[in-house]
């Protein structure tokens, strides 16, 4: 029995981190209606940044947030401004410009292989003050780094919720997401909102990167396994919904951990896709999605 409780809690911890990796994706989709295929690569960039920061300075791993998050914000901001925006403008009459998918995939190839070129095919693990630290509760062990990660996810979720609901910029973002033209007519500069949202989406990857580095490895293609998982999570939670992404992540985490106790781990992978397809058929808007989006 205690083993199952341990599984469920571990599933929730890892799941909330999955959710965290998906938040940026859902944010960008919600506003721009674009699936960012370079998402995993941006996470990878963040992880390398965090890894080097921690390894070179030897500071507390979570101090890396201060450096990595703004870095990735500007990275995303300028990536949208320089590479994606011109394509958006050429395709502005299309509701969902799928050419942007190709462009983000191009960015993914370039980033992953640049990392291979620069950092080499070497697996790196940061040695930090929380690495390998466990919290023991009634003979159950939970990794401290994941617990902190789950906490950060919760805080980020609350912050983003507040930001979108109550701040002036957040309202402009939501207006753009609901109706581009109307928002433009109201004097909201669409392209600037897009830059900011893309920057924020990448900054969220930065947060996820800093959370992952203390207990994960860093490698040029480390983003790939998180990529598809993030796709599944955002649809599950409803494309565009931040709480949905976090909850979707937790659900996936629980399925993965608890499912594996009853079947081979290779079957749980299958179970996740099956569950995903069922949700899509029954309730395509996901758990928190807007009806207009599917």
């Amino acid at each position: 029995m205690i083993g199952y409780i341990e599984s469920v809690i571990n599933g929730i911890l890892m799941g909330s981190i999955y959710g965290l990796t998906a938040v940026g994706l859902t944010l960008i989709f919600g506003v721009m209606k674009v699936v960012n295929f370079a998402h995993g690569s941006i996470l990878m960039v963040g992880m390398f940044a965090a890894y080097w920061f921690i390894t070179l300075t030897g500071f507390n791993p979570y101090l890396a947030l201060v450096v990595v998050v703004p870095l990735l914000y500007f990275f995303g901001y300028y990536m949208q401004k320089i590479i994606i925006k011109p394509i958006f403008e050429a395709e502005k009459h299309v509701r969902e410009p799928i050419t942007v998918i190709i462009v983000t995939t191009g960015i993914w190839y370039v980033l992953d292989n640049l990392a291979l070129l620069v950092f080499g095919a070497e697996f790196r693990v940061a040695q930090t003050s929380v690495t390998g630290k466990m919290v023991e509760v009634a003979e159950m062990y939970f990794p401290l780094a994941k617990m902190i990660g789950a906490g950060i996810t919760l805080l980020l979720g609350i912050y983003l919720y507040w930001f979108l609901k109550h701040s002036r910029m957040g309202k402009a973002v939501r207006a753009t997401s609901l109706d581009r033209e109307a928002a433009t007519l109201m004097g909201i500069k669409q392209s600037r909102i897009y830059n900011i949202v893309f920057g924020m989406g990448c900054a969220c990857c930065g947060v996820a990167a800093c959370v992952l580095v203390p207990f994960y490895y860093v490698y040029p293609t480390v983003g790939v396994p998180f990529d598809i998982k993030a796709f599944v999570i955002v649809v599950l939670g409803g494309l565009g919904s931040v709480p949905g992404a976090i909850l979707g992540g937790i659900i996936i985490g629980i399925i993965e951990t608890v499912g594996a106790q009853f079947m081979a781990a290779t079957w749980t992978e299958m179970l996740i896709y099956a569950f995903f397809l069922v949700v899509l058929f029954v309730k395509p808007s996901g758990l928190f999605g807007l009806r207009q989006d599917y």
């Binding site: 191009g106 960015i107 370039v110 095919a121």
Partner: peptide
């Protein structure tokens, strides 16, 4: 150089989409 060919492939994707969406 490992990966250089895939970088070029990625760039071709970006450039074609940029100028011929």
């Amino acid at each position: 150089l490992p990966g250089l060919h895939l970088i070029i492939f990625g760039l071709v994707l970006i450039i074609v989409m940029r100028y011929q969406p």
